[in-house]
Design a protein around this nucleic acid. Structure first.
Lengths: 149, 149
DNA sequence: GGTAGATCGTTTGTATGCAAATAATTCTCC
DNA sequence: GGAGAATTATTTGCATACAAACGATCTACC
């Protein structure tokens, strides 16, 4: 017998088990992270919005598409996020004097303050997400995931 | 000096580096998986749609919310997915005779055929997603992620 | 200097995800 | 057996994601 009966609980075709697939597990882990994130930031910021503020804080004013590339958001998605952040006064956009195609995105004072307030929260979110793992496992996980990104 | 200048490339506040955060890395890894998935399945099925067919194949007819719970999709999301799969003839729904609240979701013959065709593709997608890692690393990663889900 | 190709940003359409509110039904427990 | 609580499904609203098509602008290269 190739498979011990009654031991594993999810038999399918040719040994494929949805619950063991990397894509399925990734989605569940991401869901848990999202839940932790919104418990910490509340309705204030979503994870992509936080990424946008944090990266702008780090890089200074950046063209919209370039900003999206830095945080892995495509042109359509970063536009929506910047629009919403701008409506709320965290970012502002202006034409690039050197390139009429470009829109430069910058933090407002309120956006800078929000970013500075966010770093502590964001750190806590990462810690809580990784809480089931010890320090060695955390380092392993990050290394393995980075190899796959 | 606490931090070697010029060594790390992403200095921010209090040592927080967006690019090293678990949430950010998870999003990028998920993006890569999504790209691999749609390259394999084309416009045929999305990952949640595949999860739905695969789980139905495994479990047989299941109430809609229960099905969603098994694959980590909330009631609103599983409804949309089942609706779309039903329009395309892969699933069908019927009232549960034992509980008037429930809707039972089942595979059609076409859905069963699609599922059987999909297992090989899905296996390939998982392999390709994990391709940067060797067998030991793959097992480690899956173990660590499962501990976090 | 002029054009072909690349880049930038926008828009549209579709598909998750998730929160919140609602109606219908079932369950619990006194 | 009946009221209150829980469950099931639906609907609405909002926020990512991503593909595709588009016009405007820039760059490369002849």
């Amino acid at each position: 017998m190739a498979v011990a009966p009654g031991k594993k609980s999810e038999p399918t075709v040719a040994g494929y088990t949805l619950d063991d697939q990397i894509g399925f597990i990734l989605r569940k882990v991401s869901q848990r992270h999202t839940a932790i994130f919104s418990a910490a930031f509340g309705n204030d910021l979503t994870a992509p919005q936080w990424a946008t503020l944090a990266k702008l804080y780090e890089m200074g004013p950046t063209s919209q598409n370039q900003l999206g590339r830095l945080i892995a958001l495509d042109a359509a998605t970063i536009k929506g996020i910047v629009d919403r952040l701008s409506v709320r006064g965290f970012t502002e956009t202006s034409p690039d004097p050197d390139d009429a195609r470009r829109v430069v995105v910058a933090l407002t004072d309120a956006g800078r303050a929000e970013a500075e307030r966010g770093f502590a929260l964001a750190q806590r979110i990462s810690d809580e997400t990784l809480a089931p793992l010890d320090a060695t496992q955390r380092a392993q996980l990050i290394t393995l995931l980075k190899a796959m990104s």
